[in-house]
Structures are given as C-alpha cells and as structure tokens.
Design a protein around this nucleic acid. Structure first.
Lengths: 296, 296
DNA sequence: TCAGTTTCATAATATCATATTATTTTACTA
DNA sequence: TAGTAAAATAATATGATATTATGAAACTGA
C-alpha cells in the first residue's frame, strides 16, 4: 500500500465513482480500477460493494477511508511544515559564542534577528575551545569566538575587530587627562580577569610586547563585577570595548589611552566546512555583518 | 514522497547510517543514498548533514523524522485494524427484520452472536417492503422477512417455517377443549393486528381459503397488547407461535386447534445478489441456521 | 423494450520510477 | 600511510504502475 494507492482510494470514496476519481486525478479509469482491486487483494478485504454500477463502502472500506484521510493529512502537514522551514517562516539556529561576544553582543543580535524571523535560536556560551568542540560535533550550527581555532575542518571568517580599553573611574586622577604614558601604569592597581581568559591573554601579551610592567591586584572572573569595581575606584582595568562602551558614553567609566599602545584582537565567525548552509544560516550571517557595521 | 521513501528515511535516522539502513531493509546502499538525495531534492531541504562520514539530522530532517514515524505508525495501525476485521475480531453487521421476527426472535439471536464475536450489530425493524428497500440501498447487509420479496436483485433463501396459533385465555371456555370446529369461531370476538400486517394477511387468507367466517372486534397494532387482551379474556386471537410460545408454556394462554386448519407462513433470509459476503456475513448466516434448529 | 450511454473490469503493452551492480571519492582507523 | 568502510555517482535492469483497447453489465430515455 503506497501513498498513491491511498490517495486514489480516498478520492474514489469521496466521489463514489472510479471514473470520476480518474478524471480528478488526471489518470485513466482502468488505472483506478486496478489500484482498488490490487489493494483489496493485498489487504484481503473487500473495500467497496459494487451494487449495480453504484459503489458503496464496506465496513473495512470505511475504516480504511478514515485512516487514509488521516494519513494523507499528516503527509500534507509534514510537507507544508518543511516548506515553512525552507522559507524561514520557522526554523532553528543553534549559535555558540565565547564570553565577551556572548554576553555583550549576541543577545542583541539574536533579539534583532528574532524580530525579523520567528525562529528558535538556541544560544550557548563557552570558551573558544568549547565552542570549537560543539561545531565539530554539529551540536551548534555556528559560533563566534575570539581565540584561534585549530581544527582544519572548521571554516573561520573574520567578523569584528575588537579592542580592549583601559578604563578608570570618573573620580580617578586619570579621568581628566584621558591619556597617560606607559610608565604611569606600573604603580597602578589593576583589576583583571582570570588566567586563561581571552581578555587577559591579549592584555598580557600586548603589555609584554611593549615592555610595560604592571601589577594585577584583584582577579575577578566576571566582567560586570570588574566594571563595578572600577566604577567604585578600587582600581583600573582593561576591558573589551563591547563591555564598556555604554558606561563610557554614560560617563561612569573613562577610557584612557596609554601612549600608542592598543589592545587589539579579532572575533571570528566559525562553522563546519561540511555544514549545509540553510537559508536561515546564510540569512543569519548576513544579519551578523549588517549588525556589526552599525557598531563599528 | 512515497511511504517507501519515508520508511527508508526513518530507518536511516534511527541507525544514523545509510549502509546499516540498507542492510536492515535488505537493499543496496546506493538505493538508500539515492532515495535520500531524491527526497532532499523534492522537498528542497537538506535532511542530513554529512559531517565526515557521520550523518546528523538537520532541523527539517528532525521534523520529517517525527512526521515520518507518525505516518508509518498510522499505516501500520490501519493495516492491523483491517486484519482484525478480516479475522472477525471486530466488524459491523447491519441486520433488518420484519416485526414478528424482529421482536420475538432476532434479539436473542443477535445476543448469542455477540457473545461469540465482539462486533457491532445494527438492527432495524420495519415491514417487509421497508426491509427490501434497505437491502436494495445497501443500507443493511441482511434481512429476515415474512412476506414475499419482489426485486429480482435480491436473493431469498428460506429460513424458518412459522405458524400462527389460535389462542385464548385460560379462563375461556375453549381452554379445556383445546380443539374446536371451524364453525365455532364465527361468533367469537377476535382481536387482530391491523390491515397490512403480515400476521393479518395470513390469517385472512387462510380463513377465506377454508370458507370460515369471522368477526374482528378489536384491532391493535401491537402484538404484546393483543396478548394481554387475550389473557384478560377480552377475546381470542391468532398470533405467531414465536410470540406466544412462552405464554402457552406458562399456561397464561391456551392454544386451540380449529379442525385441521393451519395458519402457515415462511420466514426468509434476504440479501442483495451483488453483496460481497464477508466472513462475518457468512458466519451470521450459519449462526441463524444453528439457532433455528434449536427452536424447531 | 431496446438503442445509446455510462461505469467498472480485463488484457496487452508501454513507461518510468526504483532497484541493482560497478566504480569513485572521501574519511576514519590501526 | 595503507587498509577499510561509508556515501556518492554512473550505467543498467527490473518491475510496478501507468496507458490504450476492449468487453460486460446496467442505467437512461425515447
């Protein structure tokens, strides 16, 4: 019994005629006859009583008619749902991101995306290595990470140029100057993320490259906590512009230049090289670039 | 998309491997590959991500898998239900009968039948012409009637020989004699069914054939009411043995012979000549004959 | 009642989807 | 890095499912 068989049978039931069903299905009448009698043979039940030249459903016929309609409806529903997926009227996108992007950038990006498309967006935050693993597993469709990616099977495309800013409280003595020499930092209390974080890595590497000594007095794993501590003038810190732009604009934190030292890094979009790029996937990447051009 | 396609797709989903699915379905691996990629072409969605040589379902793939299982389950359920019908584990039988048989015989027959088979039995009582019409319509599967059937398209097979008994109250003067001469009936008050009833037809026809005059004093359309009236000695009546056997055995009514006059008729089983005789149908006819041999 | 029409069934044949085998490409494994 | 295994591709074979042609039965209307 095929779906075609069921479709033919249901049509015959509804039109109470094989010829009429044949016409409706744009096929010959004998094809319909054959299909019905073949079904009767396979199922070993009579589906129609042929009384005169009138067809009436037998009891098993009525049962099959009821099931047949349910089956065809389910198939139609499945096809139309897939069509919705194809046209992005529904869908699923699993995104992963490393900490900074995940907390300060992606929530808004995803929010905007969901305004445009009513799709489910799953969102995971982990460090770069964790996101890389999830991509390899095909547990997420796409990632945005700060660190370098090692797997050869992962496509890496540049996304946003990030920069870490040296920030201090508006009550700090640097707040007026807005610019210091590298030497001035040496005796300052610095609040910093823990070892292993991308932010700290960039900070230490840049400082070393410029031969600037420094003193990390407080270690906090949470960027928000660091911001609060800096605002309270407990120390200064070096934080991604994504995390502090709002506070700088609001005057609660002040960005301070250190000669011409800049703490730079790149965020990358990553995905598996064999990943099939669905319409939704491509649309999301376009969305990412549109969004980034607004914040540059 | 055919049921076969869905079956193949679902198997691949469950085994997460095309080769394994091919093995399980006793078919070649390329056939599976082709089916899947053809489905992807038709539905215009990617169903699997081929990452390395591992298959993982895409989002549309997961949707189709869920629908696919529901569809296959429904098909299986339909087939097994039809199998139940074929094996008489369920079914439907629509029976019609004319008044006397319908009231005094069929309820018990159907009750016994339902003890043997858990099937739905629909039961209609009408006069012979009405039952004949329902057979022609295929509104009922089988009828039991007393009168003659006219349509050439209806098969009539003899069922039970019925006889009408002249009955009187145990307090009637005939109750002792149990036999009278035809002439004795002429001055007796007779209670009788209405014109057009099979019972009255046989009564009048037999009386006329034997040149016996009679006087119908009371007309009642309901046989039970007639029995009560006779019991109350309001008059005598002529009633099918099926309707009065119990009362005669109980002594509440007395059967009286009128010389050697007998009111005889036949009940017939009727069905449409083109009717497909399902197992249940045949079984019911066997059941009817078994039952009748108990009451003869 | 009987020709004309309609409906379903059957038979012979054609077509096309769906299988098969053979082979290539790619990736995992020892 | 060879060996193995999985999926994809290509060419071909097979068989189910169409088609046309025709027949039988039954309804319709003069």
């Amino acid at each position: 019994m095929t779906l075609r068989d069921i479709e033919i049978f249901v049509t015959v039931c509804e039109l109470k005629s094989m010829s009429a069903a044949a016409k409706k299905l744009y096929m010959s009448q004998p094809a319909v006859s054959q299909t019905i009698s073949q079904m009767e043979g396979e199922l070993q039940v009579r589906l129609f009583d042929r009384i005169g030249r009138k067809l009436t459903l037998t009891y098993p016929g009525e049962i099959l008619y009821s099931y047949g309609r349910r089956i065809l409806n389910l198939v139609k529903e499945a096809e139309s749902t897939l069509d919705d997926v194809r046209n992005m009227r529904m869908g699923r996108l699993r995104v992963g991101a490393s900490t900074t992007v995940g907390i300060y950038l992606l929530p808004e990006i995803i929010g905007e995306f969901r305004k445009r498309f009513s799709v489910d967006v799953y969102f995971t935050i982990d460090n770069t290595a964790g996101i890389e693993k999830l991509i390899s597993d095909n547990s997420i469709d796409l990632g945005i990470v700060e660190g370098p990616v090692h797997s050869r099977e992962i496509v890496v495309i540049p996304y946003i140029d990030d920069e870490l800013y040296l920030v201090c409280s508006k009550n700090h003595r640097w707040a007026e100057k807005k610019s210091i020499s590298p030497a001035e930092i040496e005796n300052e209390d610095i609040i910093m993320r823990e070892k292993g974080s991308g932010t700290r890595e960039v900070f230490e590497e840049t400082m070393a490259r410029n031969n600037v000594r420094y003193r990390i007095k407080y270690v906090l794993t949470n960027t928000e906590a660091i911001k609060k501590a800096v605002e309270a003038n407990i120390g200064v810190s070096v934080i991604s512009r994504l995390a502090v732009e709002k506070e700088i604009r609001g005057g609660r934190l002040v960005k301070v230049d250190i000669g011409n030292i800049r703490f730079e890094r790149k965020f990358s979009i990553i995905y598996h090289k064999d990943k099939f790029k669905s319409n939704l996937f491509e649309e999301f990447i376009r969305h990412l670039y549109n969004f980034s051009s607004n914040i540059k």
